[in-house]
């Protein structure tokens, strides 16, 4: 099985007529069994189509046209309009929202996440590439064109969670090459506040029988890794975890920001060094090199004990 999405998942693309969104729609339609992209929304473009997907002015029109609730939405509208687009999706019953847009102010993200929580919806991102279930479905630009995605992702027992979209593919490709496929890979986004953190996705992987181990990509900045460390300890997780930490050099350069917006270090606990220590304390193996990950996670799974 998979988490978050499966072959039957229906979704729309908000901002579907934008250059990147047109490509992303093509990719999702082509990948695996072909995603059920049941509509697109761009205000003022009602009646057009993008690769055969009908375009509407509002999410409500898309839902009405579909005739039953739509499960997901990929949001690729400019930062100033993202909050409104996400509110629109949530208020029209959408359950799972993947926000691709970068550079959205934190206040807007926090508002979207709080409304989602109130309505029982889930947000992935912002600043992310989405979700992929190898050979089945992808929701978002993750892995790129269907052909490229198939080259990197294969079905298997590993859940992948990453703050970097590109590194989700790099790590999955390395796992695939070693014969370790993925149950689901989630690009959770590189911002300081995101819809779903490692710890928030863990219960889903925990409940997924196919998943036997977790591989995560982490960076300096934020408390997300500390949150994961407490979660696995408190919940006595069955899943072994291997983490890769990039951006170690940033510890020597306080106040400078590199990479994603979320890497800005705002406190002592945010540094790479501090995070590595916390993860290790919780029994999470921290790899120095990506190529070491397959053997590490393979051995942990073989040993049959998570910590």
């Amino acid at each position: 099985m998979s988490i978050l999405i499966d072959a039957d998942t229906t979704f729309i693309v908000q901002g579907i007529t934008g250059r990147e969104a047109v490509n992303l729609t093509r990719e999702c339609l082509d990948y695996g069994a072909g995603a059920k992209v049941v509509g697109g929304v761009t205000p003022g473009r009602l009646g057009r189509d993008v690769h055969g997907v009908p375009v509407f002015d509002t999410v409500a029109q898309a839902v009405e046209h579909h005739g039953s609730p739509i499960y997901g939405s990929v949001v690729t509208v400019p930062p100033a309009f993202t909050k409104d687009a996400v509110f629109e999706a949530i208020e029209n019953g959408v359950q799972l929202i993947v926000i691709v847009t970068e550079r959205i102010p934190r206040r807007d993200v926090a508002e979207m996440v709080e409304l989602a929580n109130l309505r029982g919806a889930r947000i992935i991102g912002p600043n992310c590439l989405g979700i992929i279930v190898p050979d089945v479905i992808k929701m978002g630009g993750i892995g790129g064109p269907a052909k490229n995605a198939s080259q990197a992702y294969t079905p298997g027992p590993i859940g992948v969670i990453s703050r970097s979209g590109g590194m989700t593919t790099e790590m999955s490709s390395t796992l695939s090459a070693a014969g370790l496929g993925q149950s689901t890979a989630v690009s959770i986004g590189g911002d300081a506040i995101i819809g779903q953190t490692y710890a928030e996705l863990m219960p889903l992987f925990e409940a997924d029988e196919q998943t036997q181990g977790i591989v995560i990509y982490t960076e300096p900045g934020g408390r997300m890794e500390a949150e994961l460390a407490s979660w696995v300890t408190e919940n006595n997780s069955r899943l072994p975890i291997v983490a890769f930490m990039a951006g170690r050099f940033m510890d020597e350069m306080p106040g400078m920001s590199f990479g994603h917006a979320g890497t800005i270090v705002e406190g002592k606990e945010d540094t790479a060094g501090e995070k590595i220590a916390r993860l290790a304390q919780a029994g999470i193996t921290v790899a120095e090199r990506i190529e070491d990950i397959p053997q590490m996670i393979g051995e942990k799974i073989a040993q049959g004990s998570a910590r």
Partner: peptide, 16 residues
């Protein structure tokens, strides 16, 4: 170098 995460990873690797 690139992309976001790749650059962080590569910069660490070069220094290592």
């Amino acid at each position: 170098i690139g992309a976001g995460g790749g650059s962080l990873t590569l910069f660490d690797a070069v220094r290592a």
